[in-house]
Design a protein around this nucleic acid. Sequence first.
RNA 1: GCUCGCUUAGCUCAGCUGGUCCAGAGCGCUCGCUUCACACGCGAGAGGUCGCAGGUUCGAAUCCUGCAGCGAGCACCA
Length: 904
Amino acid sequence: MSEPLPPQYNPQENEDPLYRWWEEQGYFRADAHSTREPYVIVIPPPNVTAVLHMGHGLNNTVQDAFVRYRRMTGREALWMPGTDHAGIATQNVVERILAKEGHTRYDLGREAFVKRVWEFVDETGGKILTQLRAIGCSLDWSRTRFTLDPELSAAVREVFVRLHEKGLVYRGNRIINWCPRCLTALSDEEAEAKETPGRLYHLRYPLAEGVDAPGLPRLPDGRPYLVVATTRPETMLGDTGVAVHPGDERYAALVGREIDLPLAGRRIPIVADDYVDPEFGSGAVKMTPAHDPNDFDVAQRTGLASLNVMTPDAVMNDAAPEAFRGMDRFEARRAVVAAFEQLGLLEKTEEHAHAVPHCYRCDTVVEPRLSEQWFVRMKPLAEPALQAWRDGDLRFQPERFGKIYEHWMENIRDWCISRQLWWGHRIPVWYCQAEACAETIVAREAPTSCPKCEGTNLEQDPDVLDTWFSSWLWPFSTMGWPAETDDLRAFYPGHSLVTAPEILFFWVARMVMAGIEFRGEIPFTDVYFTGTVRDHLGRKMSKSLGNGIDPLVVKERYGADALRYTVISGSGAATDQYLNYENLEETFGPGRNFANKLWNAGRFALMNLGDDPRIPVDEVRDSLEPMDRWILSRATNAIREVTEALERFRLQDAALRGYEFFWGELADWYLELVKPRLRGDMGDDSRRAAQATLAEALDTALRLLHPIMPFITETVWQKLPRAAGAGEALIVARWPEARAEWTDEAAERGIEELQAVIGAVRGIRSEYGIQPAARVPVRIAGSDEAVAMMEASRRALRDLARVEELTFAGANGEIGASAVLRSGTEVFIPLAGVIDLDRERARLREEIGRIDGQIAGGEKKLSNESFVARAPENVVAYERDKLVSFREQRGKLAEKLAALEGAA
RNA sequence: GCUCGCUUAGCUCAGCUGGUCCAGAGCGCUCGCUUCACACGCGAGAGGUCGCAGGUUCGAAUCCUGCAGCGAGCACCA
């Protein structure tokens, strides 16, 4: 016999050594030269500065489960690890550190600052990759990549140059989203609209002197005026015109005339443009081309000038009237409104909720700003990416995300890719400084001289690229592209992608475009969206709220498997998950208990299988008993259902079915049923058959659960005896195969009947308070098949239901309790001599008397006219319902009493 | 404003293409058990008019319509 194991599983001492052993075995490594069919997932690279949180825990457990499953089915499975340099995010982290030292990045200068960031990243970066090991993630660490690696940077430049050559990258002076705190341009996706309460200010703009406008209202001094509305009054300082609809008769005569712009002391023209909706507001719109994208468009059409009145950090600049210079934009807003009010030019102010864009990194209100930036023309890239979804080549899990994808692709706008940051991929563009030349050079490597004028005074564009401009290449840049590497041939295109819904546009959609554009194939076929991890109050877990759960603390207290089982069984695709950070026991206890149950089933098996080689089921085929055939049949069913669930990306179903098979079928029933046989009570053949079947069923359960709970399943499996001559060193070597010949409907029916009978006996025992240790006689009447089954199951009934003597006959008017099963089988327990009948009858009579009293009370109440008249309707209804339930209860008790009083 | 999703036991959720689901699980709750794998356990229970109102159907938690509440995505109406 083996050493006896402790009765409780200790994940803390098992998990990390086991992980190291897997890694040493090279188990996670994928071979590009394998002849096996590949299966590839690329990790959504976490920010290099990230620390593992529950969102990662969920997302990476899902990926690991997918990868481990495919690996078990014999695929050459690659899970590609790595991190993202995360432009703004990382730069912000280091800038905050500098700020504590009393410095800004400008104090250091660009070169020193970037060096500093590299030091920071080299020192603390990638910590999360170690943490992913702790929760069992089976990534191929030999391939770990970073988006700023030389090879990946080369891929970025290659893509920029190629797109430029195709005319898909261009530079333009346009309104972009600007973060006044990060001091950089943002893409549309990086500006998050947030519903914010605001005000709509209606401003009076007087017409220039001498303009006649009979239909317009007039100021006290007699000047006619137009009313314009705005939510951002400070921008009026940069107004360069007022627009009306060309067909608006009210203003037709005013087009071409001028406005005296208040506060600014400038005259601005009135123009006509279709953009204006004559039905909305006054039908006149102020135009601030430098601070509003729509106004900018109108200005392009009508020839209005653009006047930028703000500095990069959103302070009113020298183009603004002196009184406002140096004011922050919100301060200026108040000042402008106050000035209008004082001049009698504030028509009215309305409460107005609207969506205000915020920086996705620092939450500052984004300021639309006119500036020169680099863009990617997206329409040509979007079309084939959309088609891939329409053709069914690209699928989303859950499917509804397809529509969101479609909508975005159809309305796609050009992507602003330049960032005024220092940390990231420098834009591969150089400008010739020769005065007469000013050539723009786009190149893969730094040029030494200008190809046009041969001048050597070249300056590289100071900006870096959007961090997502490297992320969108991840599925192939990690594999050596643009070189035609073995990895690329073997592992592109990949298969599944697991990510959060908010990354759909940032990353998923763009990866599809890049995959098609540069490799001619979509990078993956299935996209699985995880939900958001929230606390028990439904709030998103976040550092600032302090409502997070540290996955490593969970691992420490409950084990990584408990963590994994909890997140997998607790949520489906794109379903939010609620975890209580105040009560970890409630949240993760069940997962730990499940692992412990597996451990103990393993202990049980070890005690009963001995050290001899495992007996194959086929060897004991002829000695199999119904319970053996039943559990093998259930195992076959479980294999089918778990496999199907995994194939359909229904991880939750896979986990729950595995749980049900192991705990509800194998542990609750089979283990209990075979105990006497394993002890040898029923002879040697029976024992061998039970041992073989137990080993098989437990083996199946462990394998089915392995993708979700790799540590405990491997640990238990390693301890079990192997088949003679079998060389399997790892549980994971094989996914179980459903053997059709093991499906046995007769055995299933038989054991179900047995379970029902045992359940009925237990129910009666509990109901009548029969001592647990007391044995009871039982009579059973049913079909021949049912009777035969029970006849053969005397031992099971004795052990599991404490049945004393089993006879087959009807109740026949005796005193006792009976139950009729769904199958029609009747179970009867004579109670004379088992319990104190007199006492039980007395108890029942007392109970009935009590209920009768309640019924009488209720009836009296309801027949009391004044009560019915005065009481609210719902109270009356409640009394009626109560009466009905009392009568029902009374009926049951009376029936029971009658049974105990006998035929009389 | 447009589009989409959700609303099932105290809590968190399963219930796929309508009929053995006269509704299921885990947690929690009640009662009873130190039964020789496991008290991180075993056995037995209580608890739901499946958001509301209509409709289709022989039959609906499951399909359709409307309403309400919650959530998400998108949006230039100043």
